[in-house]
Design a protein around this nucleic acid. Structure first.
Length: 464
RNA sequence: GUGGCCAUGGUGAAACGGUUAUCACAGAGGUUUGUGGUACCUCUAUUACGGGUUCGAUUCCCGUUGGUCACCCCA
């Protein structure tokens, strides 16, 4: 920003000289154009205009996590690369193709986290969190990195809201996590659909995969080219193929549900029962399998109901990962479960809702609210500094534009910010220890004693 | 990683290959630092970057970068 401005200013100062010189670039390197940097591909600025979305989401996270008794925790962005390879799995795209990994100055292989779960599991093992009352409920939020091809709702640096419960295998935990994710979205005004499935134990999955591959081989000729390749590479992925013919084949094929062990099946039934009890609607999706290796039993995903953005409509997902903590050197049998929601996608959904709302009542004007404080002249400015400060300390938020000189300019801003009242302090008022309070709708002005201003404003705020 | 489409000020758009790149909105400043939601004036673009074709390129071609959509994958 600053470099650009500087360049512009020099350009406007001597436009004539510039033009002739620009073509014969010989000595005139003085006006070298300063390079304007852009964000690196796939990275996104959060602009002040969009800030309110993030603040809203932070509030929603905090409130809901407090209500459910989750503690805030954080893990570093940078971890040993191997941590992710081991937990997410070699052969997954996330690890093989999309991970930001490099050697640091000591030659250690590190990676920027592509997800939260592995870091949390590591942290749990690292700090012996099994000695806390079990299970440990944690939540976090922050940036994650995946070197993917950017698209709307998909960036290389993206943000997730994440909850993890480590140290207990109970279906009620899974139901609770689904409830949190569902309610988080509901609190923001998004009605989500929960898709749920169970993929059982790793052994269950292995047996099922063998069966599935056998079946798919027999139907090979009906499958799409892409899926044919996947039979050997990643057969489970064929289940959620978007190809219609593939789907037809899948419908007739074996379902993982039928391959679950008795225990897993019962566990899953319980999860569903608890969801019914919590009155969370869900859709059983026999083809739902998740991409990361560590998942066991319950898996679920959340979609917006009005899924306009075809492939980007998944807001989040999660599941149980009973084997991960042990895999990372933790105590034997440390079960866990968690979910993550993509915040950029939540914003996408919020925007869409806003668009629809605008269509419906575009005529309705926003009601004015808020107080603006305008000042005029040096003496009044000084005085108003103090008054504004006092008001703010006492919890009354006032807009002001104290750096501006003219009253006109200030009232213009008051209007744009949609303030209901403006407090005006000029030379005269400064002397009389009064202020003028102007109603921005009617234009009616009242003279108020400075001492009474606070209580006066309070009554105004109450009324609106 | 594969394929398609696209790129003009802060935003949204104009401009048969031809003078000074047009318009709206936003922004900054001003119309005697005491009155906004309605006026007026001024300012705010080496047309993404780099090459080429041409007397001449915002317009045509190539490359780069970025955006976007679908696939892959996923949040």
């Amino acid at each position: 920003m600053p470099p650009k401005k500087a360049a512009k200013k020099t350009a406007t100062k001597k436009p004539a000289a510039k033009k002739s010189a620009a073509k014969k670039t010989t000595t005139s390197d003085a006006k070298k154009r300063v390079k304007v940097y852009e964000t690196v591909r796939g990275m996104k600025d959060i602009k002040p205009l969009d800030g309110h979305y993030w603040v809203r989401m932070f509030h929603a996270m905090q409130n809901i996590c407090k209500a459910y008794g989750y503690s805030y925790a954080e893990t570093p962005v940078l971890e040993a690369a191997q941590l992710f390879v081991k937990s997410i799995g070699k052969g997954t795209d996330v690890v093989d193709k999309e991970m930001y990994s490099f050697e640091d100055r000591d030659g250690n292989k590190v990676a920027m986290r592509p997800e939260f779960t592995a870091g949390f599991a590591r942290s749990f093992v690292n700090h012996g969190l099994f000695s806390l009352p079990q299970p440990v409920r944690m939540w976090t939020q922050g940036p994650l990195f995946r070197y993917d091809r950017p698209q709307a709702g998909r960036y290389r640096q993206f943000h997730q809201f994440d909850c993890e419960v480590i140290g207990e295998r109970d279906p009620v935990i899974d139901a609770e996590l689904i409830a949190i994710s569902y309610n988080f979205l509901r609190d923001l005004g998004i009605s989500a659909e929960v898709y749920i499935n169970s993929i059982g134990t790793p052994e269950d999955r292995q047996n099922y995969t063998i069966e599935l591959v056998g079946y798919l081989r027999s139907k090979r000729s009906y499958l799409s080219e892409e899926s044919r390749k996947r039979i050997t590479k990643n057969p489970l992925r064929i289940l959620d193929s978007k190809d219609e013919k593939d789907q037809e084949v899948i419908q007739e094929g074996p379902q993982i549900i039928d391959w679950l062990s008795q225990e897993s099946k019962q566990f899953f039934m319980k999860v569903l029962e608890y969801l019914d009890e919590l009155q969370i609607p869900y859709v059983l999706q026999p083809t739902l399998v998740r991409g990361l290796d560590y998942y066991t039993d319950t898996v679920f995903e959340l979609y917006t109901e009005s899924s306009d953005h075809g492939s980007q409509s998944a807001l989040g997902g999660g599941g149980r990962y009973d084997g991960l903590v042990e895999l990372l050197g933790g105590k034997e049998q440390t079960p866990a479960s968690g979910f993550a929601i993509g915040l950029e996608r939540v914003i996408l959904a919020l925007r869409e809702i806003e668009r629809n709302e605008k269509k419906q009542d575009s005529t309705e004007k926003k009601e004015r609210s808020g107080i603006f404080f305008a000042q005029l002249g040096e003496q009044a400015r000084r005085k108003s500094l103090r008054i504004i400060e006092d008001l703010r300390r006492n919890g009354i938020f006032v807009h002001s534009s104290i750096s501006k000189g003219s009253l006109r300019a200030q009232l213009e801003i008051a209007d744009k910010e949609n303030c209901s009242h403006s407090v005006i302090l000029g030379q005269k008022e400064a002397q009389d220890n009064t202020v003028v309070v102007r109603d921005m709708d009617s234009g009616i002005q009242e003279i108020i004693d400075q001492k009474k201003l606070e209580s006066y404003l309070r009554s105004l705020i109450k009324n609106t």
